[in-house]
């Protein structure tokens, strides 16, 4: 009963904000709606017993990726009139893609009724926690794929840094070691100049 209510709550709150992402006029609002959608998708994951995936979804997508999205969108000055200009020209193409997606969803739904709590497919009771099961599989059977994925991420990260990093000649980067080594004796001089004598710096 509660699970059903929770499912419909999460499902509605995933789909409605997903629509709002597209329809919102303000890009920052779009990103915030997207975050809400991510968050509720994590709730759906919890309902099917995939607690590890749910937490990862929140940590990775909501906690890291979306923060960067928001960061960039807030800083950019996006002109929405120019973004919407190509709407009618791209409309047929968009409709084709939408139809293909719709077809795929219909196939997927008819192949397996989504939502085990609703279609009376009981979730198999897990003998061990999610994390243990995933870890044992990842580090034995899929070890190679797992490590390749890690290497790919590393390459992507280094690539992004190399592509965007420009060394500018006019930067005066502070040398932290020098700053730490500095002592009061080098910065302060105690003087007692006589009247009218002044002092040399």
């Amino acid at each position: 009963m509660i699970a059903t209510i929770a499912f419909y709550l999460f499902a509605t709150l995933t789909i409605a904000p997903a629509l709002a992402v597209v329809f919102a006029r303000n890009p920052v609002h779009s990103v915030l709606w997207l975050i809400l959608a991510f968050f509720n998708a994590a709730g759906l994951m919890l309902l099917v017993g995939a607690e590890f995936i749910a937490m990862l979804l929140v940590i990775v997508y909501v906690g890291a990726v979306a923060v960067l999205f928001l960061f960039v969108v807030m800083m950019l000055d996006i002109d929405f009139a120019s973004l919407r200009r190509g709407f009618s020209a791209n409309l047929p193409f968009g409709i084709i893609i939408a139809l293909v997606l719709l077809g795929e969803i219909i196939v997927a739904v008819s192949a397996w009724k989504v939502g085990p709590t609703l279609s009376n497919h009981a979730i198999p009771a897990a003998a061990q926690p999610n994390i243990v099961a995933l870890g044992q599989l990842l580090y034995s059977r899929y070890l190679f794929a797992f490590e390749i994925a890690g290497l790919l991420l590393l390459v992507a990260m280094i690539g992004a840094i190399v592509l965007t990093h420009r060394s500018r000649g006019d930067l005066r980067t502070p040398k932290v070691s020098k700053q730490i080594r500095r002592r009061p004796g080098e910065a302060i001089r105690m003087l007692d100049p006589g009247v009218g004598e002044g002092m040399k710096l």
Partner: peptide, 16 residues
């Protein structure tokens, strides 16, 4: 089971 991950997830929400 995922208590610590939950803590991490919730604290990453705090920035919003």
């Amino acid at each position: 089971n995922v208590g610590l991950l939950y803590v991490l997830a919730a604290s990453s929400l705090g920035v919003y």
